[in-house]
Amino acid sequence: MDFATAITILIDGLVFSSYLFLVSVGLTIIFGVMKILNVAHGSFYAWGAYTSAYLIGIWSNSGLPDAGTFLMIAVAALLVGVVLGLFLERCLIQFMYGRDEVIIVLATFATFLILEDLILVVFGVDPYFAYQPMMVLGSTQIGGIMRDVYSLTLIGLAAVVGLILWVGLTKTKWGRLLTAVIHDREISVAMGIDVTKVFILTFVLGAVLGALGGAYVAPTVSVAPGFGIDVIVLSFAVVVIGGMGSIPGAIIGALIVGIARAIAVHKLPEVELFVVYGVMVAVLVFRPEGLFAPAKARKI
């Protein structure tokens, strides 16, 4: 393998890993704290993408400088995450605490089906294009081929998000509360932690992260109906590989899947699709709890 190919694979892999990390970290946080496998995560992603594409279009059409479209991405992520996340938690999830966890999964599945069709109602079936942010940043030459800078910034964004989460969880009082809840819900309540508040904030945080993934990807794709379906499974695979509920796990899972896929595309395109699931099955067979999650004792 020559140097150009190696560097290309590395960059492709990092870009895709960053994308995977962004879309899966929200899922894993919600799971870690609340033990909810949130199928509606795909809806956060899709709604984030649609809102971002929509706002970018408005911004751009009103003659404002295209550089401002980045602001729209952030606004879209926050808007969708906070509104949709808060709405779901307050109107649905909060009534389900104490019920069977799998019933909660089903409720989020139902929500996903509803939100999926609501997209059609609100945004129509025509795809949205929001290419402006990508054009603003232009291209650069790396390893002998052209790169669009926008995709490269994905790596930076993922690193920043990862760093903020790490500092937030380990260095702040808030993060330690969260960690306590993750470890033992009952004891946390006994010690006076307001679990309800922790849950609301966690759910909204997860929703914002999911929406951010969609909002940031929107400029590079055609945002079309059905956008959220594949993402659920992809982020789910990353979370399973890394260990459900573990943030370092999400990083490692994303890196493994992203780089393995890049190698496959360049060296063995026939197995490209299978790579994600192949890694997942290997992990499942040898370490079913995922690479990073500590083996959890069965509660009796």
């Binding site: 492709d12 870009v15 895709f16 052209m146 995709s151 590079t220 594949d230 595309v265 360049h266």
Partner: peptide, 22 residues
Amino acid sequence: ENLQFPKIFAGQYGSEISALSL
């Protein structure tokens, strides 16, 4: 010899475009 066959509706083709460029 290096042909790309991504899944329909895959949406993101960054790696495929790199491979085609190379």
